[in-house]
């Protein structure tokens, strides 16, 4: 058991070192949601009135509404990016060293997902600290209660990313993933607008939002931040994580070079 622990801590330590040495990554991860919060929310505040909806017990500003969604946006971009970077790592980099370790491959993949998830969560808390000073102040205890919810959502998105990366042969396809996965997941969710608003606009778009696991991730975090529990959201996130993780581990191939075509040499 100790060997597993040392392995897990080694993978965490390496991810942390890489994160620490690429601080511009942190900056870019924070700029995106902060722009949404400060610029986008200011513009849409007047257009989008928010009624009293759970888990809020009073009228809230639009900024307050979108903070949980923007926190999940950080998890979404990081989760996809770190999982898809494995496409590159498998052929070129350190992933080969990871995969020639004597520990079980499934364990190694889960360790890598967990480590990436924790790095993402650090970024989310830095974002939440900034939003606190901006005036969006959920209960202090909510910040602590949100931790397991954030971990759940980060793992779910990492597992989806890992599953996607199994089907992607080149890192250049990340642009395609942005257009066909990240943006639809984000915009077809409750991150920027409550689903009842979407229901008023279009019923079929509403149902797409309801079926989107990212919506449930956002709601899980939103409820947790305001000290409430959303069992449906938790079940959807847990089930999505389990299914995607199992499928990703089962379909994982250490080399992305297709076995149907020869490698370069």
């Amino acid at each position: 058991m100790k060997a597993y622990w040392y392995c897990l801590s080694g993978i965490f330590f390496r991810e942390w070192l890489r994160f620490w040495q690429q601080r511009t990554r942190l900056l870019s991860a924070l700029v995106r949601p902060l722009l949404w919060l400060i610029v986008f929310a200011a513009g849409f505040r007047a257009a989008l009135g928010i009624a009293i909806i759970a888990p809020y017990d009073t009228y809230i500003t639009y900024e307050t509404y979108i903070v949980p969604g923007l926190a999940c946006m950080i998890l979404l971009f990081n989760g996809m990016q770190s999982s898809l970077s494995m496409v590159y790592d498998r052929e070129m980099g350190s992933m080969r060293i990871l995969l020639t370790s004597p520990q079980p491959r499934s364990f190694l993949l889960i360790c890598k997902l967990l480590a990436s998830a924790c790095i993402s969560i650090v970024q989310v808390y830095i974002f939440l600290a900034i939003t606190w000073f901006y005036g969006v102040q959920p209960p202090l205890l909510g910040l602590l209660v949100a931790l397991p919810a954030l971990l759940m959502v980060a793992l779910m998105l990492g597992a989806i990313g890992l599953l996607l990366s199994n089907g992607i042969r080149q890192l250049e396809n990340f642009a395609g993933v942005m257009n066909f996965v990240i943006f639809p997941l984000f915009f077809l969710s409750s991150a920027l607008y409550p689903l009842w608003k979407m229901q008023e606009a279009s019923l079929w778009l509403y149902w797409l939002c309801v079926l989107n696991p990212f919506s449930h991730g956002v709601e899980l975090v939103r409820y947790a931040l305001y000290l409430q529990f959303n069992p449906v959201a938790l079940m959807v996130c847990a089930a999505t994580t389990a299914i995607c993780l199992c499928a990703a581990v089962l379909t994982f191939s250490p080399k992305r070079t297709s076995l149907r075509t020869a490698p370069s040499k």
Partner: peptide, 16 residues
């Protein structure tokens, strides 16, 4: 971007 020692420590951890 890691030092020589950090690279080796990572490998040692992967071997438990």
């Amino acid at each position: 971007d890691l030092t020589v020692e950090q690279n080796l420590r990572y490998h040692a951890a992967l071997h438990g």
